[in-house]
Structure formats: C-alpha cells, structure tokens
Design a protein around this nucleic acid. Structure first.
Lengths: 186, 186
DNA sequence: AAAACTCAATACGCTACCGTATGGAAGAAA
DNA sequence: TTTCTTCCATACGGTAGCGTATTGAGTTTT
C-alpha cells in the first residue's frame, strides 16, 4: 500500500530553517542539509524558494513577526502589574531554567553583524521591544530618560548574560539573576 | 633590485586570523582567504599550522591571553579608585565611540555556542574577568552576593548592548549609557 | 480517463575549500 | 661554493554546496 505523499509547504521549510539557524547559525543553514533535515531532497526547496537568499529573507520576516507578537503579549499589563510584566520579560530570557527564544535571538543578532538585511530587521524588532518596555517603565512613574535607559539595560542584560559562562564564578545563578532582575525592573 | 623576502611568522598569521575572525566570524576564517589576505598562498599556512583546527586553537589561546592581560590592567586600581576603574571597564566596551575588542569578543562568543574548545576558553576568560571586577566591587564595600551580581551585570550589559540596535529608540545614547554605567558601578 | 497542476528527485556544471605532496626560492651555516 | 634550513607556491584529489534543467510521481480538475 503506497502511502499518500506528505507535502511540505513553505511555512514548514521556514520553521525547520529557523531551528537550524538557532542551533548552527546562518552559516549552518545550508540548502542541502536543510533538505536532509526534512527528509527530502533540494528539488522541493527550489520549488518553494527562489534561492538561499529567499529563504533567509523569509526566515527573518518570520522571526520578526514572532518576536513582535511575543513582546506585545509579554508587556500587556493591567495597571499595577507593570513591574511583574517587566520581571516576566526578563525571566523569559534570562532564567537559568527558561531560555526560550535565546538561541535564535543570538543567531540572528550575530548574523546581523554581517548582513545589512538582518541588521535592519533586528533594528525594527529592537525598536518595538524597547518601546514596549519603555511604556511599562513610564507607567511605573519613571521619567523619559530613566525609562529609556532601563529598557536598554533590560535587553542588553538578557542578551549579554546568554553569551556568558558564569557557572565557575557563581554557584547560585538563580539568586544572582533574581537580584539583577530586581535592580533593573525597579 | 629584488627586495628581501618578507617572512611571515606564526604570530603574524594568528594576528591576521584574529582580524578576519572579528569581522567575519569563525566560518569566515578560511585557509585560502586568510592566505590571500596576507598576500601569500596556503603553502605557508601549512608550514606553520597542521590544519585549520590548529589555527583555531592558536587564535583562541591568543585571545584568551590578551583578554586576561587586559582585564587585569583595567581593574588595577589604587584604593579609592575602584569605581573609576569599573566605569572605565564599562566605557572600554560600551561607549558608542570606543568599542575596542567588541567585534572579536562577540565572534568568539558566538563560536563558543557551537564549539566546545572555544566554550572552555570563554569560560576561563569570564571566570577571570568576573573575579577581577568582583574584587573591585568588594573593595567598594559591597557584600559577596551583591559584588557577584554586579560583576555579572556589568559584563552582561556590555556584551548585550553591543548586539543591539538602539539608535531609533533613543537619540542620545551617550547619556543613556552613562546612566546605565553609573547604576551598575554603584 | 486524460490533462493540468503541485511538489519532489536527480543529474549536471561550476566554484569554494581543505589537506597532501612536491618542488622552488631565499637565507643561513659549513 | 655547497649544503642545509626555513618558508612559500603550485598541482592535485576529494568533498561540500549552490543553482539550473529535466523528469517523475501524486493529486486535483476537466
């Protein structure tokens, strides 16, 4: 009994590409290895995408939309819950146990250091994100300058700490990161 | 008049490789492109190095030594000058005008996400660096936990902010970064 | 059932890249 | 001057990777 053909659509390719990107960086995202990852050959890839750059652009657009939707969700807070929302935003990225979205975040940012298209997407995402946290800080009663500074500090911290290896320096990273989060959020 | 042969030694190769790494990342560090960058062919490369991995290891060792010497210099402070030394440490990496060492820092860290040897070197460098700033914070009168947290926060911030694109969010980044540095250092 | 459409496999040509082997060139030592 | 040492150039073989062209297979439409 010949099984029905399992069809891969363009979004499936983009999703798989995003996984490879997160783990291997942009140089690891290869047409033939991606096809192999999906258990097909590259004929299918070239049906869906013009070339590798087309895939890159699709992955970036997908990442951008996902990040912006996420940040808007994370920073939606009832009055009086702003600090909790800010702490949650930090927690989502910086907690030793919950690192959601960090691998691809770092991969895209490293790519952006060398690719102008990626750099522009990162700029859009950063602008939106910083604006969201800025509004939370302002709702906490901070002035313009301080709200801006804390927004930058928040994201700089979560991205930066993900690049570091602190385990030999401090044994209780959970407590340490909680301390930092509290200082950033208020 | 035939000019004397300009001889490249192993350190010259390592230095050039470090420049390429900083700008193009580890995947951009190719034997043949590196040789071309140095205006020779790869015969010379293979005289000095066994293979590409040998070059990688040499570059990492070189980076580690340079970083550790730098941090020890930067954090050498007369009593009463600890805050100034901490602010200087932040300034060296995070100032919009002075980004010394950041490109290669980010390149090595991204590489370390995927390479166990690089990861171990990063761990060594981080451990040393955090210990240096920790001692400065302790000398400022902070307790163990706070000194540790601020050390992590300092480096997380400088690395993270280098990955971000804040220009559209805030026009006066110098003042903003000064505000953050002050909050981290005391 | 035949035709049209969608999706995927494969062959091909070309380039980049790595590492090895061999020979050449320059400088130093005998 | 000859020999030895150090360093470099080149040729070669093999693989990875990209994109294009062509064909095959499954599904949908007529």
């Amino acid at each position: 009994m010949k099984s029905a053909r399992k069809v891969l659509d363009r979004p499936a390719w983009i999703k798989a590409a995003s996984e490879i990107l997160a783990e291997h960086g942009i140089e690891g995202l290869r047409v033939e290895t991606l096809a192999k990852y999906l258990r097909v050959t590259k004929g299918s890839f070239y049906w869906h995408f013009k070339d590798r750059r087309d895939l890159h652009d699709a992955v970036l657009t997908h990442w951008k939309h996902g990040r912006i939707i996420d940040i808007q969700k994370q920073t939606r807070a009832e009055p009086g819950q702003e600090i909790a929302a800010l702490l949650h935003t930090i927690e989502v990225y910086a907690s030793p146990r919950s690192r959601r979205g960090i691998p691809i975040e770092l991969a895209v940012r490293d790519w952006a250091r060398r690719d102008a298209v990626a750099a522009r997407i990162v700029e859009e995402v950063d602008t939106e994100r910083l604006a969201c946290t800025y509004r939370l800080f302002v709702a906490c009663g901070l002035d313009d300058a301080e709200a801006k500074a804390r927004s930058v500090m928040l994201y700089a911290y979560v991205f930066g700490v993900s690049l570091m290896r602190c385990e030999r320096f401090a044994s209780d990273l959970t407590a340490l990161k909680t301390w930092i989060a509290e200082r950033i959020a208020h």
